[in-house]
Design a protein around this nucleic acid. Structure first.
Lengths: 351, 351
DNA sequence: CTGTTAGCGCTTTCAA
DNA sequence: TTGAAAGCGCTAACAG
């Protein structure tokens, strides 16, 4: 192609220089024809010529070159625990929607729930000079690797990157805080109001703050009514469908007289329902089940799952907006509360 | 400019130049210390010094600068119809898994099922000089905008980008072809074997090739047994949960004597089941339902949904591998077949 | 309003 | 092995 084929690349795209030449203007004018602002204007006819030449040559600006020259990109890096989990898929959808409105490109990393990979992704995003970093998903209690994440995030900020997190305000960055405790407490009170008294909790991983908060909130809500969940009715497990299935199986295996099970997220709740069925129990008559999140894809399970609705897409969109705010001295927090949604999985026992 | 801190940027990261200076070597040597190959080696002690200096300065290569200098990036652009749809989320997971193995970064665009946005995303990815483009999701019959997509894809290839598609082999690129026809035909035969004779199809959008192929395959499968689906029992609709709900409602509204409904994807099938329930029908006794895809998140619906399993994650991983293959004269096709999975939603009527 | 020119940070000849 | 220097494509002073 150009350069009479002595390029080592297999092919190349037209450059601004070539467009300028074709339009009979200087490089600078060609650049201004595209980026022209109030201060840097181009005579209309020249502008036309440049645009025409660009179209003719099928020119597209090289984003990498622009990034170099401008010293900034329009890349948003989103890090999630597991993109195949509908929880994160919904958040991702929200981030992408908001990114679109700002003309930003979203790149995504899925850590497969491996904390170290989160650190690696942040490093990769720093290398890409991403403008925005969004960390979605619960923090862990493990402080060792949390340190490293913090260091990496600081490094990202140090070169001018903007950051937001979704979950707990553990990092010194703007974060969208989900009202896990309050939501779970409200759920507990609602269930108590429906007449339930003997509860078990499928509690998720004990290292996951979100899981811990939901458990704590649930207990706090029950405590208001003098009701407790004994330790042997709190079963830990993975934060996944299979984790819910396993935890529920474990509970059934132990034998129990509980009438209502709270799984700390919907995905686990669905797994728990499957385990209950496989165990021959009829739902919801022989066991009530509640979850958390109100995952859209799961709204059609039967019996309909009582849960706490969290506006996941909005979470993603809000996080991007927060990240884009001009940096302040103190990180900003935006709290989002969940709303209890009662469905058929927890029928009213008081009547 | 950035001479003595009069840069307009708020901050900057250490550059290779600075690392080189700190290590007391030339820029070239510093570069080689990182990228060193067999031909371009660096004396071990110098190498050490460079690496130490880099660590000291918290240096990270600027990917944009590397892209400029090398003329190539390590960006994979993935375009999906809707990331919140578990179908695409699974594919995305597969792509990311495979990308990881190659040290590639994945950026994602979700078109919200708006064909024009697909074109825009491809344009954006060309601008980013992405190395790989993966187009996931059914092609449409609409030729007008298909032309534009084709042109944009060609432009992408023209500058050296590698492309793969997932769905139908309509574009002249490597593609992972899903055996929609064969899978639906097999499903039809299976259902016929279970004793069903009067079918309806919730057919999805008539412009979507995947939807059309599944309908055609289903009919072909039934035809083998002398069974037909009359036109008035084929109800179009959106390719979503709500589309399935609406189509099923429409069918029920018309009044019908069918005993089994085939929704052309699982998400629609779940919507259809909800509609059937809302209409007071008991499943699966009063109506059998089958879907297509075997979405993981939906494996726990009740009654368990009979469907055609498509290995979605593998689809994504395969697509990336295909895209990465050295360009050949002819686009390569990789066919993936679905496997019928019979569950409780279509009980055996023959006994 | 337009053109010239100096970088942005890095890779890669080409000489030494 | 190492270093000097020429770009990669673009933006943004700066001078006309």
């Amino acid at each position: 192609m150009r350069g009479q084929g002595q390029s080592h690349r297999q092919s190349a795209s037209a450059t601004l220089q070539e467009v300028a030449r074709a339009a009979g203007v200087s490089l600078a004018t060609a650049s201004r024809a595209f980026n022209g602002s109030a201060t840097r204007t181009v005579r209309p006819d020249l502008r036309e010529r440049v645009l025409a030449a660009a179209a003719e040559l099928n020119y597209t600006p090289n984003a990498n070159a622009q990034a170099m020259a401008r010293g900034t990109t329009n890349l948003v890096g989103l890090v999630v625990h597991d993109i195949a989990d509908p929880f994160f898929a919904a958040i991702a959808a929200g981030v992408m929607r908001a990114a679109d409105e700002h003309g930003l490109i979203v790149t995504m990393g899925s850590t497969q729930r491996e904390p170290l990979r989160e650190v690696e992704y942040v490093a990769a995003l720093r290398q890409q000079r991403a403008r925005v970093l969004i960390l979605a998903g619960s923090r862990l209690v493990d402080s060792e690797i949390f340190e490293r994440l913090g260091a990496e995030v600081s490094a990202f900020q140090a070169i001018g990157g903007q950051v937001a997190a979704i979950s707990q305000p553990k990092l010194p960055v703007n974060t969208v805080v989900v009202g896990n405790r309050a939501g779970a407490a409200k759920l507990a009170e609602t269930l108590h109001g429906l007449g339930y008294r003997r509860f078990a909790v499928l509690a998720g991983p004990s290292t996951l703050l979100t899981a811990r908060d939901r458990l704590a909130g649930f207990r706090a809500g029950l405590a208001k009514h003098g009701c407790v969940v004994p330790g042997d009715r709190v079963v830990p497990g993975e934060f996944t469908r299979d984790g819910g299935y396993a935890a529920m199986s474990e509970l059934l295996h132990r034998g129990t007289d509980v009438t209502c099970v709270f799984a700390v997220n919907d995905v686990m709740a669905v797994g728990a329902m499957a385990a209950l069925r496989d165990h021959g129990l009829r739902l919801p008559d022989e066991m009530a089940v509640a979850g958390f999140d109100d995952i859209v894809t799961l709204r059609d399970v039967t019996p309909g799952l009582t849960t706490v609705r969290v506006p996941l897409e909005d979470l993603g969109a809000s996080a991007l907006r927060l990240a884009l705010e001009p940096p302040a001295e103190k990180p900003r927090l935006q709290r989002v509360r969940g709303v209890v949604v009662v469905r058929e999985s927890t029928p009213d026992r008081t009547r």
